[in-house]
């Protein structure tokens, strides 16, 4: 997230793909303050303002966790298998965090 915002601040086009447990970051209704953790929600919602508009979420990871896209706090495009492979090929650099 910090890297995406840093890249966007430098004017570098950035997209985010939420994969595996990363998809849980997108779940609505997180009250992280209860465990004294900083909420990512504000940062996630700020992404479009910083120009990070292309958000993707792995459909397989969602299904594995019994989630549906209407439970997400941001509109992310669900992608699967071959689509993910094609997506990763499109970018100059891909970083897993």
């Amino acid at each position: 997230m910090d890297l995406a915002l840093a890249a966007a601040a430098f004017g570098v086009p950035v997209s985010l793909l939420f994969l595996d447990s990363g998809v849980m970051q997108l779940l609505k209704g997180q009250e992280s303050a209860l465990i004294k953790q900083k909420s990512l929600t504000a940062n996630l919602k700020a992404l479009p303002i910083f120009g990070v508009e292309d958000l993707f979420v792995c459909q397989h990871s969602l299904s594995e966790r019994g989630l549906q896209s209407n439970q997400l706090l941001l509109p992310a495009k669900p992608v699967e298998g071959a689509e993910i492979a094609a997506l990763l090929e499109q970018y100059d650099q891909v970083v897993t965090l």
Partner: peptide, 21 residues
Amino acid sequence: SGLGQWVDAMQSADRAVTFGS
């Protein structure tokens, strides 16, 4: 320095390789 240095390095290098992710 800041994360921007990583962004900058990835952009200008021929290959970017990450370890420990």
